[in-house]
């Protein structure tokens, strides 16, 4: 499964980059995120409650960031385990481009899922993932804009 999208955020690229690396910001933006612990600058641990079709499960997983390309972008890899619900793993490349006072965020994400999640939700997984990704960035956009206003 592959997802691609771009959004424009009314904030500078440095601010966007910093926010994307701030566990507090991420926790507020990730749909269903219950816990996000930063173990180091590049390693995070997350607990997320997810509902895909008939499957509702608490996923716990690790996320590794690769900031090699900062602040033009970064990439991340993650994997999560939802017990009997199955498992998911994937990665994303995020590219940040300055456009005046705004920043254009483009992302390409890839994910593999397995277990009951893949069986029961297979026809829902792509649409749900798209929805989750878009609500993440919508939340992020809102948060950044209210921060700019404040």
């Amino acid at each position: 499964m592959e997802l691609q999208d771009e959004i424009t955020i009314s904030a500078s690229r440095d601010k966007v980059y910093a926010a994307l690396n701030d566990p507090e910001v991420l926790k507020q933006c990730i749909p269903g995120c219950e816990e996000l612990i930063k173990h180091s600058d590049t390693e995070l641990e997350a607990k997320v409650l997810l509902k895909i079709g008939p499957v509702k499960a608490r996923f716990s997983g690790n996320v590794t960031l690769d900031p090699g390309n900062a602040p033009d972008g970064f990439s991340l890899k993650g994997e999560g385990n939802g017990g009997v619900a199955g498992f998911a793993r994937g990665g994303a490349d995020v590219e940040l481009t300055e456009q005046g006072s705004q920043t254009v965020l483009r992302y390409t994400a890839k994910a593999d899922i397995g277990g009951k999640l893949a069986q029961l939700g297979s026809r829902l997984v792509t649409s749900t993932s798209r929805k989750l990704a878009s609500s993440f960035f919508k939340n992020f956009e809102n948060l950044m804009e209210s921060a700019e206003k404040a």
Binding site: D112, I113, R123
Partner: peptide, 14 residues
């Protein structure tokens, strides 16, 4: 099955 070995027809919907 997909490449991960997920069985894709596990309910009467599929």
């Amino acid at each position: 099955y997909d490449d991960l070995g997920n069985m894709k027809n596990a309910t009467l919907m599929d």
